[in-house]
Design a protein around this nucleic acid. Structure first.
Lengths: 198, 198, 198, 198
DNA sequence: AATGAATGAGTTTTCATTCAT
DNA sequence: GATGAATGAAAACTCATTCAT
């Protein structure tokens, strides 16, 4: 029952299957076959649309990255107060879509993968830069020269909280709840900014 | 001419070769053959001593973990002031041996690996708990009820700074120097403790 | 808007694309997709018209064979002098259309292919027999009983010169120019016939 | 029952199996599995020793080429008369080992393969140059300036006779017997040299 | 103690071919 | 008449692991 216009549907299904498979497995050691089966297609079709496994991985990263980037953009659009904007970025970083165990797990796997692969590295770099410039943009108003340093601290804290979530025995424990993570980062921002203001 | 007492020598050589190989590659996708060649022995010998690849990985993690644990113990032994003890833990976390690019890279790879493998997960958990209790032990004196929260923040920050180092374009840039990392964590401790004291 | 009479157009386009593709690649390891793309159609259409890859190959051989056969027929029609007819056959064998690098390359590939495939073998045999009988027909007048032997020599020489052209580093070098090849075969004919006449 | 020093034995067995497989099949479209099975080993072992299919093919070509080259060297060593040396080269070209159907078939396949692959092309070129210089060396004494031209004719004739043998319906027919081929080339030499001498 | 020899099991990738539209 | 969609089957290649010596 082949129809027309299946390409975008299949691509998306395969990418989502990839996130799931990688998230479940907790690493990139998933086979094209496993991903394809999850998407309900043959491994050959995955190759047909993506050319190679690495390309599917890159598309998957782009998907995750884009999802987050758009969510942040949407959230920030109507808000102009710097401090509140920072909170929105933080909140978005730990929003359900990003902080779901499978997504976090996939993220971490891609981070490691980026140590090997040019393409993945580049993608991650773009994302890191965007997050950094978002943070610095608003921090500048509040902390002036300290903006870059605080941004670095916030980014490291977020990355660290992701890792800890990925390795948590029980991701549903309050210690790893998104609220806890958000509170920690907000607190960091508050204390850092309080000092700057002095 | 079979030599006596080769076992510990070979084990150590293989473990060190594994750290190097994994660090260089930036992931666990190294073959037993590559590790064995680096250690100057045959792949068969690696199996002879470790039984399986996963066992070699576990031994390698234990090696890394033990190395860090011992360094912290040694550093803390003569020091009794809580605040200075915290500084020593932080300093040790970014000491050359731990913060060398290859080591950081291997660390990260094992973190991801732990998402799959029971054994690796357990090992990492032990380490996390030890670090946590070390931190809490000293923080208790300085921040009372806030100890656990601050410990969590410090740990996340350290993990985050490791990740960022692993993905740095240029690990020798000042932004990723150990001093910068140490300063960031120390600053976190200072601001958090300052507030507690109030 | 289905067009009428597309079949012959598509068939021819596909066959010509096959010659080009095989010639370029220097072997039959071209995919239906590559051939189809060259012809500006989908791989499915190639199957639609030819049923299978092997059938397309056979049609391509028939095309090449027929082209040569017709050229020879046309050239020989007005000529009745045996010696001059022989020259025309030789000339036609090295005419631009036959001796173009891509064509020579495709020829050679089909020769090898014929070792596997019944159909291809048969086709090649028909061509060989026709060339042989053409040669013998005229040689009989000039060399009597020696006709068959000389024909064999001429045929072998032509095949050999094709191979050498196919493997030439530089097909445009004078050593591999059609004139050189023609001169060599003509010389063979001359010397062989000179002796017969004695 | 693994023993030591198997490598050369396996390499040779695999190379010989490759000649047989290619010869039987009449082309390079044989799988590593087929070759390995013939050699009585697993496909993995073939890769272990040769690294890749193409490498096995190159080794096989080198084997065939070397075999012929050595046979010619041995045959020519004690002979100093130019004309007789030419006959030895011709005789060796059609000696049983070279002219066996499987070998001829493999040759032809490699010729076509050389149109694609650098390595194979280079190997064939070396062989062609050696044959050419061998022929020219002796022809120079007998035909002076004509040496190169005659050598080219002889070489083309030999190649052509190989092809014709490869495509023969019945390789045992007198028309394709080595004696017939030798006679044809000898006759070419005789007539060409007779003219030169005049 | 150490290794060369060997392989089974798996994974990516390619492609001819089919089919519903 | 023409094609996008889809796949089965096969092939190269990799690698952890075993074993006899």
């Amino acid at each position: 029952m082949p129809k027309l216009g299946m390409e975008p549907i299949r691509r998306r299904a395969l990418i989502e299957a990839a996130v799931e498979a990688i998230g479940d497995r907790g690493g990139l050691d998933v086979t094209m076959g496993q991903i394809a089966r999850r998407a309900g297609v043959s491994p050959a079709l995955a190759h047909h649309y993506f050319g190679a496994k690495e390309q599917l991985f890159l598309a998957t990263m782009r998907h995750l990255l884009g999802q987050f980037g758009r969510a942040v953009s949407v959230a920030l659009a109507p808000e102009h107060d710097p401090r509140r904007r920072l909170s929105l970025i933080v909140a978005e970083s730990f929003a359900p879509a990003q902080f779901a165990p499978a997504t976090v797990s996939a993220w971490l796997a891609f981070y490691v993968h980026a140590q090997n692969e040019q393409g993945a590295r580049r993608l991650l770099r773009v994302y890191a830069r965007r997050l950094h410039s978002n943070l610095v943009h608003d921090l500048r108003h509040l902390a002036g020269a300290e903006a870059a340093r605080i941004a670095e601290g916030v980014a490291a804290l977020i990355d660290g909280l992701y890792i800890r979530r990925a390795l948590a025995v029980d991701a549903t424990a309050p210690a790893h709840a998104p609220e806890t993570a958000i509170a920690l980062v907000e607190d960091y921002l508050d204390t850092q900014l309080a000092r700057s203001r002095t």
